[in-house]
Design a protein around this nucleic acid. Structure first.
Length: 677
DNA sequence: GGGGCAAAAGTTTTT
DNA sequence: CTTTTGCCCC
C-alpha cells in the first residue's frame, strides 16, 4: 500500500519590476547581486546602506528565494519597520512571511518556542531596567550582603556590570579590573549576587533584555538540532549596522550563518557609537578574516549631503586613528552656503536662535517642520529648546529617554496583565500590591510568600485568584482593597487556566481598581488617563497576551506612539528633537547641533577618564560625525559661551575640541546678538 | 510603613 | 542650589 505524503509548498513570490542596473550605482549593484557566500559592505554615511540592503532582499526574492528563508537583523524597531515596509513596496509578497526585525525581537520569538529547553516557560516575562533593578535588589538582600558596610554598588551599577560581562563575553574579574577598579574587592559578593539573580530569574520565569540574546545563543549551543533547524530556516542572513554588534550578537550571527555562509553585513566603522554597551567594531574590521572568501564592497558615494556638509564631516572624523580609510565623494551639486558656526551668549539665546531660525526657514524657504532636527549629546541639553518651542508654538516631537512603556501608569496597568499571564512574576505581583494602602516592601514580601505557598501558585488550570487570596493574612487597612484586587485579577482569567485577550483585560483593570488609584495618586490624572486610552486602543490589535506584552517591552516609546498616530491622523509635521544616538540612520534637510561646548560634547566624563589610546574620545568624535552627517542641506553648529549652572554659578564654556579641529574655511561664523530681552 | 530631618548626589548615550 | 537617598522614630 502506498504511503501518503504531503509536501507543503509556499506560493511563488511575484516578481518585482525593479531594474537593478538602472536604479543602483556600480558598487551598490555589485553588492546587491553578489553571489551566495559571505559579503561585507562598508558604506559611508548617506551612501544608501538601507537601499542596498532592501534591494538585496528584493533581488533574492526575485531570484526565487522564499521570504521565510531570509533573516534581516536590525538594531532598532524603527529601522526594522522602515526596511520591511520598503521591501513590501518593492516586492509584493503578502502570501509569505519575511521573518526579520531587531536582534531582541527575533531572540524573543525563538525563545518563546523553546523556553522549556532552558528551564523557562513560554509565557516568561520580559523585565525592563526598572524591573531588573527590583529583582536585583531582592537578589542582593537574599545573598545576605551587608551593602552599607562595604560601600557595595547600587543595583543600577550592578545591573550595568552584569550586562557588560554578558555582552562582552568576558570574565567579571577582567571587567572590574578594566572598568570598575574601585569595586575589585567586591568580586566574590558580586558573583554570589549574579548566581542568586540567575536563580531568581528562573524562579520568577522572567528574562531581562540581555537574556533575549544570551539565552538564544545558549539555546543554540546546547541543542545542535534546534540550531540546525534555524540555520536551515534562515538560509540568507542580512545584518544592518554591523559596526554596532557586540560579542553576543556577533556570535549569534556567526552561528546562524555557519553552514551556508550566505551572509551579508552592512556597516560603517566611522559610525560605531555603542561601545559603552559592549559593541566592538573589531567585528567589522575582522569580518574578512573570520569568513573565508568574503567579498568586500566599499560604497563611497554620498547621496545625502551637499558637498559643504560633506567636507566638514570628512574633516570632523579625520583625527581618528582607528578607522578604515574612506573617501566620501559627493553626488550632489554645491549649495553655495557653508555650514554655520554659531557661538551664542547663553543657553537661553541658543534656544531663541534655534526657534527663530526655524520659523524663518519655514516661512521664507518653504521648509517643513518635519524636515528639521535639533540634535544634542544628552537629553537634558534639550530643556531650554523645549521651553522656547512651547512658547513660540513650534510643534515638536521629542525622542525622550522615557519609553512609553516605562511610564509609571503604563507599567502599573501592564503589571496586572503580566501577573495574570505569568503567575511566577514576583516583580509584577509586588508592584501591584504595593499600590494598596498600607502595603510597602515588607508586606509585599509577606503577601508574595503566601502566594508561593498556596496551591493556586502551582495550579495550571487556575480559574480564580480570589479563592486562594481571600484567605491571606493582610493588614487591616489593606483588607478590602486586597480583596478588590483579587476579584479584579479573576476577571483577567478565562476560567480554563489561561487569560482573557488583552483588549478585554484593559477595562477590568482600569475600571476595576486602577482609575481610582490614579485619581488619588497623580496630579496630572487627565494626561495619564489619555495614555491609558491609547494603550487600550493599542491592545485591540492583539489576541495573544504574550505577544502584546512582548511588544510593549520591546517597542521604544516613539514607536508605540507613532504606531498609534499613523492610524489616527497624519499630523506629523513636527520638528524632531533627539539625542544623537537616537538619530542614527535618519536624515533631515536642516540640522541644528546644540551644546557643542567642551565637557558637554565631548562629555566631561570621557575627557577625564579616557585611556591612553583615546578610544573614548574617538567614539565621541564618531558621535559628532554621526550628528553632522544627518544633514542634507543646512547645518548649524552651536555652543553657548556661558552656562548658568544650577549650583555652580556662571561657568565660561570653551567651544568643543571637535569644532577647534575643523579648518576655519569650512564654516561661516555667525554673530548673534540679542535685540532686547 | 510613613513622616521628618540630614546628608549626599547631581550631567551621558539604549535594546 | 535642588532633588533624591538614608536614617531614625513613631
Amino acid at each position: 500500500m502506498a504511503r501518503e505524503y504531503t509536501v507543503n509548498t509556499l506560493p511563488a513570490t511575484p516578481k518585482s519590476d525593479i531594474n537593478y542596473a538602472a536604479d543602483l550605482n556600480d558598487q551598490q549593484f555589485a553588492a546587491v547581486t553578489a553571489p551566495p557566500g559571505p559579503s561585507l559592505v562598508i558604506a559611508g554615511a548617506g551612501s544608501g546602506k538601507t537601499r542596498t540592503l532592501t534591494y538585496r532582499v528584493a533581488y533574492l526574492l526575485d531570484n526565487g528565494i522564499y521570504a521565510a528563508n531570509i533573516l534581516l537583523l536590525t538594531f532598532t524597531n524603527k529601522a526594522s519597520r522602515e526596511m520591511l515596509e520598503r521591501v513590501e513596496q518593492l516586492v509584493p509578497h503578502d502570501t509569505q512571511d519575511l521573518w526579520g526585525g531587531t536582534f531582541h525581537s527575533v531572540g524573543n520569538k525563538i525563545l518563546r518556542r523553546h523556553a522549556e529547553e532552558l528551564g523557562f516557560e513560554k509565557n516568561f516575562s520580559i523585565m525592563d531596567r526598572e524591573d531588573q533593578k527590583e529583582l536585583l535588589t531582592t537578589a542582593i538582600a537574599e545573598s545576605g550582603i551587608n551593602t552599607k558596610e562595604l560601600n557595595f554598588p547600587k543595583p543600577d551599577v550592578v545591573a550595568d556590570i552584569f550586562s557588560l560581562v554578558q555582552n562582552m563575553d568576558c570574565d567579571m574579574a577582567e571587567l572590574l579590573e578594566w572598568k570598575y577598579p574601585y569595586f575589585e574587592h567586591h568580586l566574590e559578593p558580586l558573583q554570589k549576587v549574579q548566581e542568586k539573580y540567575e536563580e531568581k530569574k528562573l524562579a520568577t520565569n522572567s528574562m531581562d533584555f540581555d537574556d533575549l540574546l544570551i539565552k538564544t545563543l545558549q539555546l543554540f549551543q546546547e541543542n545542535p538540532n534546534i540550531c540546525q533547524y534555524y540555520q536551515k530556516q534562515f538560509e540568507w542572513v542580512l545584518v544592518d549596522e554591523y559596526q554596532d554588534t557586540n560579542a553576543v550578537q556577533s556570535d549569534l550571527i556567526d552561528m546562524l550563518a555557519a553552514p551556508h555562509n550566505n551572509i551579508m553585513v552592512v556597516g560603517d566603522d566611522a559610525q560605531s557609537i555603542y561601545s559603552w554597551r559592549g559593541a566592538d567594531f573589531q567585528n567589522i574590521l575582522q569580518f574578512v578574516d573570520r569568513y573565508e572568501g568574503a567579498r568586500r564592497f566599499v560604497i563611497e558615494t554620498n547621496y545625502r549631503s551637499v558637498p559643504e556638509v560633506l567636507s566638514l564631516a570628512n574633516a570632523a572624523i579625520k583625527p581618528n586613528r582607528a578607522q578604515f580609510e574612506k573617501n566620501l565623494a559627493p553626488a550632489r551639486p554645491d549649495a553655495e552656503e557653508l555650514p554655520a558656526l554659531i557661538p551664542v551668549q547663553d543657553v537661553r539665546l541658543q534656544a531663541a536662535f534655534v526657534a527663530q531660525r526655524i520659523l524663518e526657514l519655514v516661512d521664507e524657504e518653504g521648509i517643513e517642520f518635519s524636515e528639521i532636527a535639533v540634535l544634542y549629546r544628552a537629553h537634558y541639553h534639550s530643556m531650554e529648546v523645549q521651553m522656547e518651542f512651547t512658547n513660540r508654538d513650534i510643534p515638536f516631537n521629542i525622542t525622550s529617554g522615557l519609553r512609553f512603556f516605562e511610564q509609571a501608569h503604563i507599567k502599573d496597568v501592564a503589571s496586572f496583565i503580566k501577573f495574570a499571564a505569568n503567575r511566577k512574576d514576583e516583580v509584577s505581583f509586588k508592584r501591584i500590591v504595593k499600590m494598596l494602602p498600607g502595603v510597602g516592601p515588607g508586606t509585599a514580601d509577606k503577601l508574595w510568600n503566601q502566594w508561593v505557598a498556596c496551591p493556586g501558585y502551582k495550579d495550571e488550570k487556575l480559574a480564580e485568584f480570589s479563592e486562594h487570596m481571600l484567605d491571606f493574612k493582610v493588614p487591616t487597612k489593606a483588607k478590602e482593597p486586597f480583596a478588590q484586587f483579587a476579584y479584579t485579577m479573576d476577571e483577567l482569567l478565562d476560567g480554563k487556566g489561561g487569560t482573557e485577550a488583552p483588549p478585554a483585560m484593559m477595562p477590568s483593570i482600569i475600571e476595576g481598581v486602577y482609575d481610582d488609584y490614579m485619581k488619588a495618586k497623580f496630579p496630572n490624572y487627565d494626561i495619564r488617563r489619555q495614555d491609558l486610552r491609547q494603550l487600550e486602543r493599542y491592545s485591540q490589535d492583539f489576541t495573544d497576551v504574550d505577544e502584546f506584552l512582548s511588544q510593549l517591552s520591546l517597542l521604544a516609546g516613539q514607536d508605540a506612539v507613532e504606531a498609534n498616530k499613523q492610524k489616527k491622523s497624519n499630523d506629523t509635521d513636527v520638528v524632531t528633537l533627539s539625542s544623537v544616538h537616537q538619530a542614527k540612520g535618519l536624515e533631515y534637510k536642516v540640522v541644528f547641533v546644540i551644546w557643542l561646548a567642551d565637557g558637554m560634547f565631548p562629555s566631561k566624563k570621557v575627557i577625564e577618564h579616557d585611556d591612553e589610546d583615546e578610544s573614548g574620545l574617538e567614539e565621541e568624535r564618531r558621535l559628532f560625525y554621526v550628528a553632522v552627517t544627518r544633514a542634507e542641506d543646512q547645518l548649524y553648529l552651536m555652543y553657548p559661551l556661558v552656562w548658568q549652572g544650577s549650583y555652580t554659578g556662571e561657568v565660561i564654556q570653551r567651544p568643543s575640541r571637535f569644532l577647534e579641529d575643523l579648518p576655519t574655511d569650512l564654516t561661516e561664523e555667525w554673530k548673534v546678538g540679542a535685540a532686547s530681552w
